[in-house]
Amino acid sequence: MIQVKDLIYSYPKANTPTLKGLNFQIDKGEIFGFLGPSGAGKSTCQKILYKILSYYTGEIRIDNKDLKRWGRDYLQNIGVGFELPNHYGKLTALENLQLFAAFYPSEKLIKPHNLLEIVGLEDDANKAVDSFSKGMKMRLNYVRAIMHNPDILFFDEPTSGLDPVNAHLIKQHIISLKNQGKTIFITTHDMATADELCDRVSFIVDGEIIITEKPADLKLQHGKDLIKVELKNGNQTQFPIVDLGNNIDFNAFINEDEVLRIHTQEASLEEVFIKITGKNLK
């Protein structure tokens, strides 16, 4: 479990803090997402949590122990999927994995070939990473993050650069990790990914959390209680959801022609974000 209280962080020589008092909690077995535009402080927060940045103020507790008191055993138990691919291009995929695997206790390691199979890179194990596409490198990023079977995982834009098939593959695997009880913290500005993966999301803008909620609840709260009906003849109209079965106009409309589709008018996560924060996600 990760508990963050009043987290403030300023980069050296910066005039204003990048993080301005963040408060959130991520439970074991939960996928939690930070959504926000570039420069909002998402990655900075993750860097503090995986101990690349220090000298913050506030309190961070990991499994009820202060982050500052955790040593190397903490780093053994976390996995980080970076936003951009970062591998030795002159080494093969297998050599890259073997190199970093050597730093973790062998009893927890997953075999490199099994990892590569998870992301469909088993036939490319002995190819130099320089010859990989960005998507292949990102998949290699992903398996490097999970190769030592960590309990806490940080993913920065986990589906960035992936085609829809491989993005789906990675998302399904992240969900399977959640089902194994892993604590997962994702930062993204891809609303679809957040919507699909996250149990709860925080909207973060200019270093401040604006709201933390379940994506489904956010969409319901900020959507319209309407359905939109479209008929085969091209006619379309909206009706209130309340007491829909007794709505004479609705019944008359759907008897007019064959119904092509019916949609609820809940807001998309992106619309909710813009509505709440007044900012765009780009």
Partner: peptide, 8 residues
């Protein structure tokens, strides 16, 4: 960056 998160 990857070396930065290794347990060493």
């Amino acid at each position: 960056k990857v070396y930065g998160i290794l347990p060493v």
